[in-house]
C-alpha cells in the first residue's frame, strides 16, 4: 500500500521507476551505456537542460506555460558576452544578462496577466521577439567568446563531472525546498491547482505567477550562460527548440499541463531520461532518418506509462481516505 501511495503523492515516482527500467534495458542494449566515460559525456549538457526544465516545471505548477525559454537561453548569455566585450567584468555582465532574462519574464507575466492573453500565445510571441533581439543586439555578429576566462567555478572538471552539475544540485535542492517547505511554494501549487480557490483564500495569484514567470526566464538565461561557458562560443541560434525539450522533460517528470502538480526532481529525471534515450539511440546506431521518430515515440510512451501508473494508483487509493 505504501508503494502505491508513493506513486500517487509523488508525481516523479513513475518517472523515476522508468529511469531505472530504461537504465537496465539500455545497459543490456549497449555495453558502453553504463560506463563512466559515457556518463561523463551524457551528463555534460544535463545541468543546462535540467535548469530550463526546472523553471518550466515550477511555472507549469503555477498553471502557466513558457515557450520563450529557448530564446532567452540565447538572449541572456548574448547580453552577458556583449557586456564583457564592452569591458565589464564577468559578474556584472552575468547580472546584466540575468536582469534582461528577468525582464523578459516580467513582460511574459504582464502580457498574460494584465492583458489576459493565454501564456501559450504570449510566450510564443516572446519566443520570436527574444530570438530577434538576440540577433539585433549582436548586429548579427556575436563577439568571440573570451577563451582565457577562469570558469572553473562553473564548468570546471571535478573527476568525471563538471562543476555545473553541482550548480544544478544546489539550485535544484534550494528550489525543491522552497516549493515543498515554504509557504510561497504552497501558494504556487494552490494557484495552479485552482486559481479561483487560491484567490478566494487571499493568495495574490498575480504575484505568484509573476514570480514564477521571472524565475523561469532567469533559470533559462542562467542555463544558457552555463552552455556558453562550457562550449566557449556563442551563436545566436543556440537553444532553438529547447522549449519543447524542456516541456517534454517537465511532463515526463510528472507535471500536469493543467497546473498544480509537479516537482523539481521530476524535471531533472525527465531531462535525464531524454538524454539517456538520445544516448542509446546513438550507441545502438539507429539509422539517421529514424532518429527523431525514436525520440518522439519514447516521449509518448514515457508520458503514457506515467499516466497509467498514476491512474492505477489513484484507483487503489480511493478506498483509503474513508470517513465515518
Amino acid at each position: 500500500m505504501h508503494f502505491k501511495k508513493m506513486l500517487q503523492t509523488k508525481p516523479e515516482a513513475s518517472a523515476f521507476l522508468m529511469l531505472m527500467a530504461m537504465t537496465f534495458v539500455f545497459s543490456l542494449l549497449s555495453p558502453t551505456f553504463l560506463t563512466l566515460g559515457n556518463f561523463q559525456i551524457v551528463l555534460q549538457p544535463i545541468p543546462e537542460i535540467a535548469l530550463v526544465a526546472i523553471g518550466v516545471t515550477i511555472l507549469m505548477i503555477s498553471g502557466e506555460f513558457d515557450l520563450s525559454v529557448g530564446s532567452v537561453f540565447a538572449l541572456s548569455p548574448m547580453v552577458m558576452v556583449l557586456l564583457m566585450a564592452a569591458g565589464f567584468p564577468l559578474p556584472v555582465s552575468m547580472i546584466g544578462g540575468l536582469v534582461v532574462a528577468a525582464l523578459v519574464g516580467l513582460a511574459n507575466a504582464f502580457i498574460t496577466i494584465r492583458l489576459g492573453i493565454p501564456s501559450f500565445i504570449a510566450t510564443l510571441g516572446m519566443l520570436f521577439m527574444a530570438r530577434s533581439m538576440t540577433v539585433v543586439i549582436s548586429d548579427g555578429f556575436p563577439p568571440p567568446f573570451p577563451r582565457d576566462l577562469d570558469l572553473w567555478w562553473i564548468v570546471g572538471k571535478v573527476d568525471l563531472l563538471r562543476v555545473s552539475v553541482f550548480w544544478l544540485l544546489g539550485i535544484g535542492i534550494l528550489l525543491g525546498i522552497w516549493l515543498r517547505k515554504f509557504d510561497f511554494g504552497s501558494w504556487i501549487f494552490a494557484t495552479g491547482g485552482s486559481q479561483e480557490s487560491a484567490r478566494n483564500m487571499g493568495i495574490n495569484v498575480n504575484l505568484v505567477k509573476t514570480t514564477t514567470f521571472m524565475l523561469c526566464s532567469m533559470l533559462a538565461g542562467f542555463a544558457g550562460m552555463i552552455q556558453v561557458f562550457r562550449i566557449k562560443a556563442i551563436v545566436p541560434s543556440m537553444g532553438t527548440g529547447y522549449e519543447l525539450t524542456a516541456i517534454a522533460a517537465t511532463v515526463i517528470g510528472g507535471a500536469a499541463l493543467a497546473g498544480g502538480v509537479g516537482s523539481v526532481i521530476g524535471a531533472v529525471i525527465g531531462a535525464l531520461l531524454l538524454a539517456f534515450i538520445e544516448n542509446i539511440i546513438i550507441l545502438t546506431r539507429v539509422d539517421a532518418n529514424w532518429f527523431r521518430f525514436a525520440v518522439g515515440a519514447i516521449i509518448v510512451i514515457a508520458v503514457t506509462i506515467n499516466k497509467m501508473t498514476r491512474d492505477v494508483a489513484a484507483r487503489a487509493k480511493y478506498k483509503e481516505v474513508e470517513d465515518d
Binding site: 549497449s30 558502453t32 560506463t35 566515460g37 562550457r230 546513438i282
Partner: peptide, 13 residues
C-alpha cells in the same frame, strides 16, 4: 552543443 554531444557519444560507442 547537441552535435558535439552526439559525436562524442558515438565515438564512445
Amino acid at each position: 552543443s547537441v552535435t558535439g554531444q552526439r559525436i562524442c557519444q558515438y565515438i564512445l560507442g
